[in-house]
Protein backbone atom coordinates (compact mmCIF):
# COMPACT_ATOMS: atom_id res chain seq x y z
CA UNK A 1 0.00 0.00 0.00
CA UNK A 2 1.35 3.42 -0.87
CA UNK A 3 1.20 6.37 1.48
CA UNK A 4 -1.50 7.85 -0.78
CA UNK A 5 -3.71 4.80 -0.26
CA UNK A 6 -3.12 4.78 3.48
CA UNK A 7 -4.01 8.46 3.70
CA UNK A 8 -7.15 7.98 1.63
CA UNK A 9 -8.28 5.26 4.07
CA UNK A 10 -8.19 7.70 6.99
CA UNK A 11 -10.35 10.76 7.62
CA UNK A 12 -8.48 14.09 7.48
CA UNK A 13 -8.28 14.36 11.25
CA UNK A 14 -5.18 15.00 13.36
CA UNK A 15 -6.07 12.14 15.71
CA UNK A 16 -5.40 9.70 12.85
CA UNK A 17 -1.68 10.50 12.88
CA UNK A 18 -0.40 7.59 15.00
CA UNK A 19 -2.52 5.04 13.13
CA UNK A 20 -1.25 6.33 9.78
CA UNK A 21 2.38 6.21 10.89
CA UNK A 22 1.96 2.65 12.20
CA UNK A 23 0.43 1.49 8.93
CA UNK A 24 3.05 3.25 6.86
CA UNK A 25 5.94 1.73 8.78
CA UNK A 26 4.41 -1.73 8.61
CA UNK A 27 4.26 -1.43 4.82
CA UNK A 28 7.86 -0.44 4.44
CA UNK A 29 10.78 -2.77 4.16
CA UNK A 30 13.04 -0.78 6.44
CA UNK A 31 10.35 0.40 8.89
CA UNK A 32 11.14 4.09 9.14
CA UNK A 33 9.52 7.32 8.04
CA UNK A 34 11.24 9.78 5.69
CA UNK A 35 11.12 13.56 5.81
CA UNK A 36 9.03 13.75 2.63
CA UNK A 37 6.53 11.29 4.04
CA UNK A 38 6.29 13.26 7.28
CA UNK A 39 5.62 16.41 5.23
CA UNK A 40 2.98 14.71 3.11
CA UNK A 41 1.18 13.38 6.19
CA UNK A 42 1.31 16.79 7.87
CA UNK A 43 -0.20 18.46 4.78
CA UNK A 44 -2.89 15.82 4.50
CA UNK A 45 -3.96 16.10 8.15
CA UNK A 46 -3.54 19.85 8.34
CA UNK A 47 -1.04 19.69 11.19
CA UNK A 48 2.45 21.17 11.37
CA UNK A 49 5.45 19.11 10.34
CA UNK A 50 6.90 19.60 13.80
CA UNK A 51 3.86 17.88 15.26
CA UNK A 52 4.52 14.83 13.10
CA UNK A 53 8.20 14.90 14.09
CA UNK A 54 7.31 15.21 17.78
CA UNK A 55 5.18 12.07 17.51
CA UNK A 56 7.88 10.24 15.55
CA UNK A 57 10.48 10.95 18.20
CA UNK A 58 8.22 10.29 21.21
CA UNK A 59 7.07 6.75 20.44
CA UNK A 60 9.63 3.98 20.42
CA UNK A 61 7.99 2.15 17.51
CA UNK A 62 8.81 4.94 15.11
CA UNK A 63 12.14 5.60 13.46
CA UNK A 64 13.42 8.27 11.10
CA UNK A 65 16.54 6.33 10.16
CA UNK A 66 16.33 3.06 8.22
CA UNK A 67 16.17 -0.06 10.36
CA UNK A 68 16.81 -3.61 9.29
CA UNK A 69 14.12 -5.59 7.51
CA UNK A 70 13.37 -7.32 10.79
CA UNK A 71 13.42 -5.61 14.16
CA UNK A 72 14.26 -7.85 17.11
CA UNK A 73 13.15 -6.44 20.46
CA UNK A 74 14.50 -8.21 23.52
CA UNK A 75 12.67 -7.69 26.80
CA UNK A 76 14.97 -6.50 29.57
CA UNK A 77 12.66 -5.94 32.52
CA UNK A 78 12.84 -7.67 35.89
CA UNK A 79 10.35 -10.57 35.47
CA UNK A 80 12.16 -11.72 32.32
CA UNK A 81 15.62 -10.90 33.64
CA UNK A 82 15.31 -13.16 36.70
CA UNK A 83 14.39 -16.19 34.59
CA UNK A 84 16.92 -15.49 31.86
CA UNK A 85 19.65 -17.99 32.66
CA UNK A 86 21.56 -17.67 29.40
CA UNK A 87 21.29 -13.95 28.49
CA UNK A 88 18.92 -13.60 25.52
CA UNK A 89 20.36 -10.28 24.43
CA UNK A 90 23.93 -11.54 24.38
CA UNK A 91 22.84 -14.64 22.47
CA UNK A 92 21.13 -12.52 19.82
CA UNK A 93 24.07 -10.11 19.64
CA UNK A 94 26.62 -12.89 19.25
CA UNK A 95 24.55 -14.75 16.70
CA UNK A 96 24.14 -11.68 14.49
CA UNK A 97 27.49 -10.07 15.25
CA UNK A 98 26.02 -6.64 16.10
CA UNK A 99 25.02 -4.95 19.32
CA UNK A 100 21.66 -3.64 20.54
CA UNK A 101 20.83 -0.46 18.65
CA UNK A 102 22.72 -1.63 15.56
CA UNK A 103 21.73 -3.13 12.21
CA UNK A 104 23.47 -6.04 10.51
CA UNK A 105 25.63 -5.24 7.45
CA UNK A 106 23.15 -6.95 5.11
CA UNK A 107 20.39 -4.66 6.52
CA UNK A 108 18.37 -7.68 7.53
CA UNK A 109 18.16 -7.32 11.31
CA UNK A 110 18.12 -4.51 13.83
CA UNK A 111 18.48 -5.39 17.50
CA UNK A 112 16.69 -3.28 20.08
CA UNK A 113 15.86 -3.74 23.73
CA UNK A 114 12.27 -3.45 24.80
CA UNK A 115 10.28 -2.73 27.90
CA UNK A 116 8.08 -5.55 29.26
CA UNK A 117 6.19 -7.31 26.48
CA UNK A 118 3.31 -8.44 28.69
CA UNK A 119 4.10 -12.14 28.73
CA UNK A 120 6.22 -12.29 31.87
CA UNK A 121 4.75 -15.70 32.80
CA UNK A 122 6.50 -17.07 29.74
CA UNK A 123 9.75 -15.18 29.93
CA UNK A 124 12.34 -14.71 28.79
CA UNK A 125 10.66 -13.14 25.80
CA UNK A 126 11.39 -11.21 22.64
CA UNK A 127 9.34 -9.80 19.80
CA UNK A 128 10.40 -9.90 16.17
CA UNK A 129 8.32 -7.65 13.94
CA UNK A 130 4.73 -8.52 14.90
CA UNK A 131 5.38 -11.84 16.57
CA UNK A 132 6.11 -12.67 20.19
CA UNK A 133 8.55 -15.44 21.04
CA UNK A 134 8.37 -16.76 24.60
CA UNK A 135 9.92 -19.42 26.86
CA UNK A 136 13.22 -18.80 25.11
CA UNK A 137 16.31 -20.96 25.34
CA UNK A 138 19.64 -20.18 23.69
CA UNK A 139 19.03 -22.83 21.02
CA UNK A 140 15.56 -21.57 20.32
CA UNK A 141 16.75 -17.98 19.96
CA UNK A 142 19.31 -19.06 17.35
CA UNK A 143 16.81 -21.32 15.56
CA UNK A 144 14.17 -18.57 15.37
CA UNK A 145 16.58 -16.04 13.90
CA UNK A 146 18.12 -18.58 11.51
CA UNK A 147 14.63 -19.44 10.34
CA UNK A 148 13.75 -15.82 9.59
CA UNK A 149 17.09 -15.26 7.90
CA UNK A 150 16.20 -18.13 5.56
Amino acid sequence: MSLKTILSNHPNQPDQLIGILLELQAEKDRSFVTEEEAREIANHLGVTESRVCAVLSFYSFFATEPRGKHVIRVCKDVPCHVVDDFDVLKTVEEFLGVKAGQTTANQKFTIETSSCLGCCDHGPAMRIDETLYVDLTADRVRAIIADIRG
Binding site: L17, I18, L21, A54, F58, Y59, S115
Partner: peptide, 24 residues
Amino acid sequence: RSGAGSYVCGEEFALIESIEGKPG
Protein backbone atom coordinates in the same frame (compact mmCIF):
# COMPACT_ATOMS: atom_id res chain seq x y z
CA ARG B 1 -6.62 2.43 18.92
CA SER B 2 -3.10 1.05 18.97
CA GLY B 3 -0.31 2.53 21.05
CA ALA B 4 3.17 2.83 19.57
CA GLY B 5 5.53 1.77 22.32
CA SER B 6 5.18 4.13 25.27
CA TYR B 7 4.48 3.05 28.84
CA VAL B 8 3.45 6.49 30.09
CA CYS B 9 0.50 6.48 27.67
CA GLY B 10 -1.27 4.30 30.25
CA GLU B 11 -1.54 7.40 32.44
CA GLU B 12 -4.95 8.85 31.76
CA PHE B 13 -4.04 12.27 30.39
CA ALA B 14 -1.11 10.89 28.41
CA LEU B 15 -3.57 8.38 26.95
CA ILE B 16 -5.96 11.17 26.00
CA GLU B 17 -3.13 13.05 24.27
CA SER B 18 -2.17 9.88 22.44
CA ILE B 19 -5.72 9.21 21.21
CA GLU B 20 -5.72 12.80 19.94
CA GLY B 21 -2.64 11.94 17.90
CA LYS B 22 0.00 13.69 19.98
CA PRO B 23 3.02 12.66 22.03
CA GLY B 24 1.84 11.07 25.28
